[in-house]
């Protein structure tokens, strides 16, 4: 299973719609980095509205994606994290402190534009 990555101007947009297994998560990480490289995208929005569980493994993959993309020159914003997922992450002791987040896709794009203009 592969997660589709859409390109819009200089941005890449991803909406995760499935229950992520480890293999799919790792594949997504690789696909996204390749796509950033190939497209020269400067910003990425990963929308998690449909994700109803983030465990320690997926949290690690998402955190790594943000760091790796940053190294490649693309800013990542995570959007749409459900309240239940946010509470679960705190119980797990995962704070995703350095990860930019926004309420929804639209706010995510605004945040990206602001960060990239600074």
């Amino acid at each position: 299973m592969r997660i589709p990555i859409l390109k819009l101007h200089n941005y890449l947009l991803i909406s995760i719609q499935i229950d992520l297994d480890d293999q799919t998560a790792i594949q997504f990480q690789e696909d996204l980095l390749n796509k950033i490289h190939a497209s020269g995208a400067t910003g990425v929005v990963i929308d998690l509205t449909s994700v109803d569980i983030i465990d320690s493994f997926i949290a690690k993959v998402l955190g790594d994606v943000v760091t790796m993309s940053d190294l490649m020159g693309a800013k990542v914003v995570l959007t749409g994290i459900q309240p239940a997922v946010a509470m679960t992450l705190i119980d797990l002791g995962i704070h995703l402190q350095d990860v930019p987040t926004a309420l929804d896709l639209e706010q995510g794009l605004i945040k990206l534009r602001q960060e990239l203009e600074e």
């Binding site: 109803d52 569980i53 983030i54 465990d55 239940a84 997922v85 679960t88 119980d91």
Partner: peptide
């Protein structure tokens, strides 16, 4: 839903 997420996690 919150406890469902906790349990699933």
């Amino acid at each position: 839903t919150v406890d469902q997420a906790r349990i699933a996690t």
